[in-house]
């Protein structure tokens, strides 16, 4: 091979010149270059590949069918794009405005499952501890001083001072004048003030409003409303247990189902008897023992394990 390239000193070839093969295909090599190239071993390979490639065919294309298709499309799209466009822009713009409105006006909801608690920090710095099986919602953005949240269930509020924070409950509105309080809005309603001052405005009580300072509570049940004093410094549920003083056993059972995924079969017991004591939120068996054994109530789990049958 080497003697074939001898004599042609420093001649460009396909390896040293990256346009060489391109020029060969186009017939643009010099006479000298072409003759030298045709003498090389690889020439036949390139030549064969080139000849075979030229026998290849691309796809068949039906131009007339395509023209017909394009004409049809042009007929179905009449040419008045300006008017259509303006309407389109207006439609898009109104959708954007409306959805932005919905977004700003939309509310955010937090929900806890049975046995679960959640701590929520609002944008104004207020902290709400949401107890089990409860939900709290508020507007995505607080506008001006209208800070209103809606609660079902139970939560402990630590509110930044001096603003018009209000909590809607099923029994009325709790207006915040101070800082820390607990609302329980379940079968019965209970509002405890732990620090500062709150006011309950309710249409379901004898008085239209109750102002509570530290250590005061209001309880509303179906039969009565009472204002009493309490001593604890934080709600017991925040420490992981529930405490009762002279409460009907029905309240205790109702409280249990907020922490454990169970139901009670109570047909054969008297649920009006009063209970004093507490149960923990982290262990069902311990909680059942702590509440039912002192009351002389026997309990049996059903086969599925979530219905507890009670008997005396």
């Amino acid at each position: 091979m080497s003697n074939k390239q001898d004599g042609k000193r420093m001649m460009k070839n396909y390896d040293t010149d990256d346009t060489f093969l391109g020029r060969w295909i186009a017939g643009e090599l010099s006479e000298e270059e072409r003759i030298a190239f045709e003498k090389t071993d690889v020439f036949k390979q390139f030549d064969f590949i080139n000849k075979e490639s030229q026998l290849l065919q691309g796809p068949n294309i039906d131009t007339e069918a395509a023209l017909k298709k394009v004409k049809q499309q042009l007929e179905t799209k009449p040419r008045k794009p300006k008017v259509v466009k303006l309407w389109q822009y207006m439609a898009v713009a109104s959708i954007v405005i409306i959805s932005a409105g919905f977004f700003i006006n939309s509310s955010k909801t937090y929900t806890t499952a049975i046995g679960e608690t959640q701590t929520i920090t609002l944008i104004d710095g207020s902290v709400i501890n949401l107890n089990a099986n409860s939900s709290l919602s508020h507007k995505r953005y607080f506008l001006s001083k209208d800070k209103q949240v809606t609660l079902t269930g139970e939560a402990y509020f630590t509110i930044t001072k001096g603003d018009g924070f209000r909590v809607e409950t099923s029994k009325g509105t709790v207006e915040v004048l101070g800082t820390q309080f607990n609302i329980r809005d379940r079968e019965d309603f209970n509002l405890k003030c732990y620090e500062g001052k709150v006011r309950l405005n309710s249409s379901k009580t004898q008085k239209s409003n109750y102002v509570l300072t530290q250590g005061m509570q209001v309880s509303i049940s179906s039969s009565k409303t009472s204002e009493t004093i309490f001593k604890e410094e934080t709600p017991s549920w925040k420490q992981g247990h529930s405490t009762f003083v002279d409460q009907p056993i029905s309240n205790v059972l109702e409280e249990l189902i907020h922490y454990y995924p169970i139901e009670f079969e109570t047909n054969s017991i008297n649920t009006n008897r009063l209970f004093t004591g507490s149960f923990i939120h982290s262990n069902l068996d311990t909680a059942l023992k702590a509440t039912l054994i002192p009351m002389g109530i026997e309990y049996k789990k059903s086969d599925t394990g979530n219905v507890i049958v009670l008997s005396e």
């Binding site: 396909y14 346009t19 093969l21 391109g22 295909i25 390139f46 590949i49 080139n50």
Partner: peptide, 17 residues
Amino acid sequence: IERRMGKALKELKAILG
């Protein structure tokens, strides 16, 4: 274009040679 053409041919030769 000449360069791309040359590259294509060289590659084909490398595969099919």
